[in-house]
């Protein structure tokens, strides 16, 4: 494509060219192409380093814009791992109907254990229940007054670990409720549901924030590149006069955009990493107070790569927009 486009005018011009230069081979052409890109790459970073302060400012704006959603996502990830811990504790208490005998209930417990979605069951006979109640509740004396044991047998069902969403647990719960012997099935799942809903809301919110901040990165890069183009208006005119294609003129600006984004991404990552490092100690102390094994996990390498890559991509897109809009307007007069 690239070659094809340049070829035609070369043919047309050959008629008037009195000195025909040696035609380089394909490999040499490809080599030259990459070499030229490398040159532009280093040239553009050289340009940036000439004005280190303003370059860093632009990158820092990008960095902060990327760091905000990234930090939120990392925190959200952490909270999500925290909420995953609930499934070990989730258990459903099945209160048998009063007329169900201990032995029938025991049989039911054994039957339930066979089910795939059940990890284990624990049978509590009516007598055991009474005993437990007596020791734990402090109403032992009151129970002595009663002639009969008022407590039903209970089967405690622990769901299999494969059920990890509230919905799946809910399904199990309803199926257990429908067993004829069961009077009442109880599960305190409300907090899990609420937490999940909260996390989903947060995730949606942060995604929107990320999109908005991503847009702002586009605008920041676009505007910076636009200023760069304005500052180099004369240079662009001159290079156009001596035969530069738009592609040639565009290239350093695109690389500049990539550098801004890339450095912004790096800054963002270091900001997120520092934030997490600073939060780690207090969070661990907090977790200790709740007897939790939870520790804040730091963003990993793939997180860093993602940030740098998306920064570079946004930088490229932003400069592309600016270049596309403004380079066309600059023509020699």
């Amino acid at each position: 494509m690239r070659r094809g486009r340049t070829k035609k005018p070369e043919h047309a011009s050959r008629k008037m060219q009195n000195t025909s230069s040696r035609r380089p081979g394909l490999i040499a052409l490809i080599k030259n192409y990459f070499l030229r890109h490398m040159q532009v790459m280093f040239y553009s970073i050289g340009q940036l380093s000439r004005t280190p302060f303003s370059s860093l400012m632009t990158s820092a704006v990008i960095g902060i814009a990327l760091a905000l959603p990234s930090a939120f996502f990392t925190l959200l990830d952490n909270v999500q791992t925290l909420s995953l811990g609930w499934d070990g504790n989730a258990q459903i208490s099945l209160f048998m109907k009063y007329n169900v005998s201990n032995s029938d209930a025991q049989k039911l417990a054994t039957k339930l254990r066979m089910r795939q979605e059940v990890k284990l069951t624990r049978f509590i006979s009516r007598e055991q229940a009474l005993e437990e109640f007596r020791t734990h509740s402090g109403f032992g004396d009151v129970l002595d007054v009663l002639e009969k044991n008022p407590l039903p047998a209970v089967i405690v069902v622990v769901p299999a670990t494969t059920l990890d969403t509230p919905d799946q647990i809910e399904t199990l719960l309803t199926s257990l409720k429908n067993i004829p012997e069961v009077d009442l099935a109880q599960l305190d799942l409300e907090w899990v549901k609420r937490l999940h809903a909260l996390l989903e809301t947060a995730q949606r919110g942060i995604t929107i924030l990320a999109v908005l901040l991503g847009l702002s990165v586009l605008l920041v890069v676009g505007n910076t590149i636009r200023l760069g183009i304005e500052n180099r208006r004369d240079e662009i005119v001159i290079t156009k006069l001596i035969g530069a294609t738009n592609r040639f003129i565009r290239r350093p600006f695109l690389y500049t955009g990539i550098w801004y984004g890339l450095i912004g991404g790096l800054l963002a990552w270091s900001a997120v990493f520092t934030t997490m490092m600073l939060l780690k100690a207090p969070v661990n102390r907090l977790a200790d107070l709740y007897y939790s094994q939870f520790t804040l996990s730091l963003p990993g390498l793939e997180n860093a790569l993602l940030l740098v890559f998306s920064g570079a991509l946004l930088g490229l897109a932003g400069s592309w927009i600016a270049v596309g809009r403004h380079l066309q307007d600059i023509e020699p007069t």
């Binding site: 011009s13 008629k15 156009k240 006069l241 001596i242 035969g243 294609t245």
Partner: peptide, 24 residues
């Protein structure tokens, strides 16, 4: 006509390549 090439036929895209044959 420059070197036998009619300038009306040089499209905007081809202008850079055309200009390389003219020193200004």
């Amino acid at each position: 006509l420059i070197g036998g090439q009619n300038l009306a036929g040089v499209t905007k895209r081809k202008i850079p390549y055309f200009r390389r044959n003219i020193g200004i």
